[in-house]
């Protein structure tokens, strides 16, 4: 599987995850009804997909090229600690800087999505085999 396809597939899965987490969070924090936010879902999914494609492209793909000589799952395992530490620090710094409640939830979701995006990106072939 080439990098572009891998990026798109990862971004789609991650966008679904991020939007469902965000939808659930907004719904519960605002005590609204499930149907209230439904019309906004497609556009939210589209925006998330674009943002995550950029995120994966700029933060995960460079690691793929950095360790290209190794098998793909090994690259993932090797650089995962660095990626996790950087992602967490980035989210934490922005949470502290923004200083409002919603930022905690949004950046928390961003961190979880980033971690899963990494796992999916480096394991897509594995899924296919299974």
């Amino acid at each position: 599987m080439n990098v572009s396809l891998r990026t798109i597939k990862t971004a789609f899965k991650s966008a679904l995850l991020a939007v469902s987490l965000l939808y659930f969070a907004i719904l519960c924090l605002n005590e609204g009804r499930i149907s209230d936010a439904l019309p906004f879902l497609p556009i939210c999914l589209f925006v998330s997909f674009i943002l995550i494609i950029l995120g994966v492209g700029f933060t995960i793909v460079p690691f793929y090229y950095l360790g290209k000589k190794n098998p793909i799952p090994k690259i993932g395992k090797k650089f995962f600690p660095l990626y996790a530490i950087l992602s967490f620090s980035f989210c934490l710094i922005f949470t502290v800087m923004s200083g409002f409640m919603a930022a905690n939830v949004i950046l928390g979701i961003a961190y979880i999505t980033a971690m899963f995006a990494w796992i999916w990106f480096f394991n897509l072939d594995k899924n296919k085999i299974n």
Binding site: P73, G76, K77, F80, P81, A84, I85, F88, M115, F116, W118, I119, N123, K126, N127, N130
Partner: peptide, 26 residues
């Protein structure tokens, strides 16, 4: 200190990732 920080933030994800690598879906 670095390992402790990494464990605190990503040990669960790391375990999941390793399981992903080692186990088959079945």
């Amino acid at each position: 200190l670095l390992n402790g920080f990494f464990s605190s933030i990503a040990s669960g994800f790391s375990m999941y990732y390793n399981r992903f690598l080692e186990e088959t879906e079945a």
